[in-house]
């Protein structure tokens, strides 16, 4: 577009202004700092012990070896067991699948009931539930031990599943309630005039419209439950310790010579599941934590 009146003064230079160099310089330095631990984990896990003793944590491996990974996965010892982290991995998987499934099913139905079928008193319980999310877990730890023991679930996998379901409920219920509330109420009314009931509307109308929020909830729960340490260490027996607990026991065990490369391989292995989910899900992960953080 030609303009008769040209702007006065020099045209501002784009790309390489001083402000931009500062901006990008700062961001790159910060990004390197944040990326450093991941880099350290990777390079350490690929070095042999002699190389580690000679160098420092940042030097790249001269001779790449996958031995530490193999050892971490299948040979590392916790106490008398020497079958590696693989046991913890499979334990975590067995805990994860039912916990994620159960907590999402319960919370989504719950959020749906709260959003669309408001009944007297529902808001009171919901408020308690949300406030409950702020109570330090430490206050509730022991009584839950008693409850689980009474139910015969203490130390078992299902006991931990139950605990994860209970403590995941506030945030997930909030997430689903807010999502369902945002769906136009007239849609719900139309379905009622069409003769659909509580479950009919949930399965036929709401569920097909809400796949994104289910994915968000799943990301939230998978990372949350996988990363849990406290509940795992309290409510399970050593044979079914989740991966985080086993990892800590391997790395922080006082017996024997410290094998830093194996430790870092083990640490990386444990972080791999949430990292893969994080890098694969991108925006949805951000949406999940934003939904969890900024209350609706």
């Amino acid at each position: 577009m030609d303009n008769a009146i040209t702007p006065r003064g020099p045209k501002p230079r784009r790309r390489l202004s001083r402000a931009n160099i500062m901006l990008y310089g700062t961001l790159i330095v910060v990004a390197m700092y944040y990326a450093l631990p991941l880099y350290v984990m990777v390079v350490t896990s690929l070095k042999g012990m002699p190389e580690i003793r000679l160098g420092n944590v940042f030097s790249p491996p001269v001779e790449i070896t996958f031995q530490p990974w193999v050892k971490a996965w299948s040979e590392a010892c916790t106490g008398i067991n020497c079958d590696g982290l693989s046991r913890g991995f499979w334990n975590s998987v067995q805990i994860l699948i039912p916990s994620v499934f159960l907590s999402i099913v319960i919370a989504s139905i719950n959020g749906y009931a709260l959003a669309n079928w408001r009944f007297k008193g529902a808001d009171v319980f919901f408020t308690i539930l949300i406030l409950g999310a702020f109570i330090p877990y430490q206050v509730m730890l022991y009584p839950i031990v008693i409850i689980l023991r009474e139910m015969g679930l203490y130390g078992s996998l299902w006991g931990l599943v139950l605990v994860h379901t209970v403590f995941g409920m506030p945030i997930l219920t909030l997430l689903f309630r807010n999502y369902f509330t945002a769906i136009p109420e007239e849609l719900f009314k139309a379905a009622r005039v069409d003769g659909a009931g509580f479950w009919g509307i949930y399965f036929r109308i709401m569920l097909p419209m809400s796949l994104p929020i289910f994915v968000v909830a799943m990301i939230l729960q998978v990372t949350g439950i996988w990363n849990d340490f406290l509940f795992g260490v309290i409510y399970t027996r050593p044979e079914i310790y989740p991966m985080t607990v086993q990892l800590n026991n391997i790395v922080n065990s006082v017996q024997g010579v410290k094998e830093y490369n194996v430790n870092m391989a083990a640490t990386l292995l444990t972080g791999l599941v949430p990292l893969i989910i994080y890098f694969a899900s991108g925006k949805l992960f951000v949406r999940g934590i934003a939904a969890g953080a900024v209350k609706g």
């Binding site: 961001l27 910060v30 990004a31 944040y34 990326a35 450093l36 631990p37 991941l38 350290v40 984990m41 350490t44 944590v57 990372t223 996988w226 990363n227 849990d228 340490f229 985080t244 990892l247 800590n248 790395v251 830093y260 430790n263 870092m264 640490t267 444990t270 972080g271 949430p274 990292l275 989910i277 994080y278 890098f279 991108g282 992960f285 951000v286 934590i289």
Partner: peptide, 25 residues
Amino acid sequence: FRTILLYPFALSFIVTGLVWQWILN
């Protein structure tokens, strides 16, 4: 940039603690 700055949040405190234990060794 956002992906790099946020990834630590996906990691557990256990993993975080162990990595920094090693870096600060």
